[in-house]
Design a protein around this nucleic acid. Structure first.
Lengths: 233, 233
DNA sequence: GGCTTTACACCTAGGTGCGAACTT
DNA sequence: AAGTTCGCACCTAGGTGTAAAGCC
């Protein structure tokens, strides 16, 4: 994922569906992004692989993206697809825009947090998400990504250009379309567009309903990861 | 003010400052728009006057614009200028976009409502604002306006074009600039840009602080009103 | 005739990857 | 050499009044 000083959106954006909440209870929904491991990576061009290049840089200030619809009732949250498209990433450790601060060339994983309103007193954009009763975190293996300041991998660049409306200006209309389609197809998880994963109980919430967290519009290992290296172009 | 089927913003937008709230109490802030009288108007071109043209049309469905930052603490509300720039007006009585429905060729006045959160259970975008304990309404004589579907008055058109960034394409750069400035100047209330008006007590709120509602960026009788007819161009 | 609707050119505001320049 | 920064052309998305057409 591209990170810049000014802040850059993620593409694709994380989108999520939640069920199993108490319809009449108020919740905050938030996202943070945590390191996958303690390593720094570099992209080895000739082998088309990300390889360990030492230990991770020193930790960055904690940041939390609180979904702008927060707080809202369980009913409201469950009725919609919850999109994190306004979340921005930065590599500026002195950022004062409330963006999520990350190191380049590291691997990260977004986490979705569901926080009962009465347990959210400590929730802040610049403090770690509180844990305990009434707070639950979810993460998805297919949303791991690697941060970069410039793409390392032509397939990913093509994928971004072809799927992101804001990059339309870089498409070579028509030509190479087949290559792209094939690339997309090579990710089994790209379809179907709506997945369902288990949503474990939130402490303090009635347990009788099934609890699912659905991610719609996959956000897979899309970004400069070796598994994206296919035989295409 | 222009109203359309699809919905049109007000320009200038209503902007307001509030003080005297309980910093730790939660409030909703909302706006509705009420008729000034029971009349319908028409613009008489040769005399440059709005004149009564019969009784008002039948009432429209009630709509309330709930400020998107709602609910928030008194501290949060008081720290910022509260802008209603996303509010939209429509003449479509069947509107389902949550816009405020008005009749064309009528006079209206916006009202700002401050609602203690625990008194806001009945607050809804499609019901009249509740009244009673913990709810307070404010309105300002200089914000009265007349609705139109097309401007009736060249001075107002010029004012809109020159002050609204989105209408820049219609400015004749440089030429007639003097005429516009003089027109603006002719409204004493245009400067200073921040006014202070008395904010009466909200029932149930401690009374010890001075209570002001400040309107910044005047929203005066800007729209097709006879007082805007000056000697300029 | 008076008012409303519609498509439109022209803006603001801001999200893209690019490629040259810069840094280390 | 490898990674980062910056200005940019090119988009999306949507807010303006206009002028012609439509409505009653």
């Amino acid at each position: 994922m591209i990170i810049t000083k000014a802040g850059r959106r993620m593409f694709p954006a994380m989108r999520v569906k939640i069920s199993g909440l108490d319809p009449h209870q108020q919740y905050y929904i938030a996202m943070d992004i945590v390191p996958v491991d303690n390593k720094r990576y570099r992209y080895v061009y000739h082998s088309s692989k990300w390889m360990v290049a030492g230990n991770a840089d020193s930790p960055v200030p904690p940041r939390v993206y609180i979904h702008p619809d927060s707080p809202a009732s369980g009913e409201t949250w469950m009725r919609q697809v919850i999109s994190f498209d306004k979340l921005k990433l930065t590599n500026n450790e002195l950022d004062d825009q409330g963006h999520i601060i990350l190191h380049s060339m590291h691997k990260y994983q977004p986490r979705v947090h569901v926080i009962r309103k009465d347990c959210g007193d400590d929730l802040s954009p610049i403090k770690p998400v509180p844990s305990g009763e009434g707070v639950k975190a979810f993460s998805f293996p297919e949303t791991v990504f690697t941060t970069v300041t410039a793409y390392q991998n032509q397939q990913i660049t093509r994928l971004k250009i072809d799927r992101n409306p804001f990059a339309k200006g870089f498409r070579d209309s028509g030509r190479n379309r087949m290559g792209l389609e094939a690339l997309v197809e090579s990710y089994a998880f790209w379809r179907p567009s709506l997945r369902t994963l288990t949503f474990e109980d939130i402490p303090g919430i009635p347990k009788q309903e099934c609890r699912d967290l659905k991610t719609d519009y996959i956000f897979p290992k899309l970004d400069n990861l070796v598994c994206r290296q296919t035989k295409l172009s």
